[in-house]
Write a protein that binds this DNA or RNA. Sequence first.
RNA 1: UUAGCAGGUCUCCCUAUCGCUUUGUUCCGAAUCUUAAUCGGUUCAAAGAGGAAAGUCCGGACACCAUAGUGCGGCAUAGCGGGUAACGCCCGUCGUUCGCUAAUAUUAGCGUAACAGGACCAGUGCAGCAGAAAGUAUGUACAGGUAAGGCUGUAGUGAAAUCAGGUAAACUCUAUGCGGUGAAACGCCAUGUAAAUCGGUGUUUGAGGGUUGCACGUCCGAGCCGAAGGGUAGGCGGUUAGAGCGUAAUAGUAAUGUUACGACUAGAUAAAUGAUAGGGUAUCUUGUGACUUUUAGGAUAACCUGAACAGUUACAAGGGAAACAGAAUCCGGCUUAUGGCCUGCUUUUUUU
RNA 2: GGCCCCGUGGCGCAACUGAAUAGCGCAUCAGAUUUCGGCUCUGAGGGUUGCAGGUUUGAAUCCUGCCGGGGUCA
Length: 125
Amino acid sequence: MRYAFPKKEKLKSKKLIDLLFEEGKSVSVYPIKLIYLRTALPENVRIQAGVTVSKKNFKSAVRRNRIKRLLRESYRLNKGQVFNNSDDTFAFLFLYLGKEMPNFGEIAPKMVELLHKFLVKEKTH
RNA sequence: UUAGCAGGUCUCCCUAUCGCUUUGUUCCGAAUCUUAAUCGGUUCAAAGAGGAAAGUCCGGACACCAUAGUGCGGCAUAGCGGGUAACGCCCGUCGUUCGCUAAUAUUAGCGUAACAGGACCAGUGCAGCAGAAAGUAUGUACAGGUAAGGCUGUAGUGAAAUCAGGUAAACUCUAUGCGGUGAAACGCCAUGUAAAUCGGUGUUUGAGGGUUGCACGUCCGAGCCGAAGGGUAGGCGGUUAGAGCGUAAUAGUAAUGUUACGACUAGAUAAAUGAUAGGGUAUCUUGUGACUUUUAGGAUAACCUGAACAGUUACAAGGGAAACAGAAUCCGGCUUAUGGCCUGCUUUUUUU
RNA sequence: GGCCCCGUGGCGCAACUGAAUAGCGCAUCAGAUUUCGGCUCUGAGGGUUGCAGGUUUGAAUCCUGCCGGGGUCA
């Protein structure tokens, strides 16, 4: 399994994002929340993922960028979990709910836990 | 040693692994009669945030709007001279205020100092309290003076009391400048529905729009407005080499100009430039030793012992880039935020 | 990316054509009334007018620069 996270796997369609907020389900492991939806995607990939950080909690653009990079990085390194255990196509959106600056050591284990929780929830359905 | 001001300068480096974007390139596939081009994947290589990228406060470039016209309105600037593409920016200079110093009783010199610094003999307005009186003046006391009289001076209130009064960051006037809208400008391509329904209004007696704060003028002109409902919300160009940067010479008090040479691929778009691990440097903290300086005691040619603050240096241990901050069409300024280092000046404290 | 508006006691608002004690309602506190509480009545406290400069004799008000909040445009 490769750890690449190219442009095609990024969630960009405004339409899909609106749909996610309307119809998506969610799991969360504080401080990360995952909103997801089983749906068709415009590109020929299994999952499109996006990240978002509230401007209200972090006014500095530098900090918002930093958190988004950490979220992307941790997803990139751990997405193999999902690809190996599921064949459906999904749209993902990760939200950062915390109000404190995290570091990679805090984010990465939470991401692993979150993706595991997601898989368990989907299999029971 | 503390704090500040001004000027200059920098905004870590190396290795490994895993990634992102752009450009070039290798190979493979799709499509096509073939090639080129195109699309998808892939190999390798190169490049990839700032001094403020920020605030959006000024000024431009550039683009579009009818060849941007006229009148009214509106906005901005304000000694003089220069610089500049331009500016509300910068430089020089004069003046005013303030502070300091020196002599002197009003000047001179200096400054990390401040200045929106045209006009109140064009007109209009405004001035609480105090005060007799606040802009059409003139009361009291004292003194002077007249033929007579607030005719003159002083006192008193106040920021200001008849003075060509004060006030324009009051209206206003003068001079100068400004057409409007901003990359969500603008051009091209693609995708999709409903050329449907209901109501109102209009077709040369002109609805509506271009058009901007208003009016006029002018151009287009058969649709337009509302209700409920349906669809799309993608791509490409604009888009990165420039009124730019460095060095030297030269003109100028300076801002800045001129000439020569040289170097320079950031272009993202739910938004790239990152993550992890290890090491190093600048540098910081602590400890030990040596030297310098000062000082106490003893000896008295240079020496010995102890103490203190500061500095220099060597070694060891530990910490180690960490401040403000993320390009979004591009430039010139201003303002604000902020960590080092260097230079100059002012300042605080301590020791001698 | 552009444009516009607003900051006054704890909360909601006045005073914005400069004038000296910055006002009103609710809330808070104290007293009266009541067996107690509420209602009612009386009184009190609470403001560097977002911050920093400037103009002026005098600034919440005028001007400039910051800070914070909100809205709007495809």
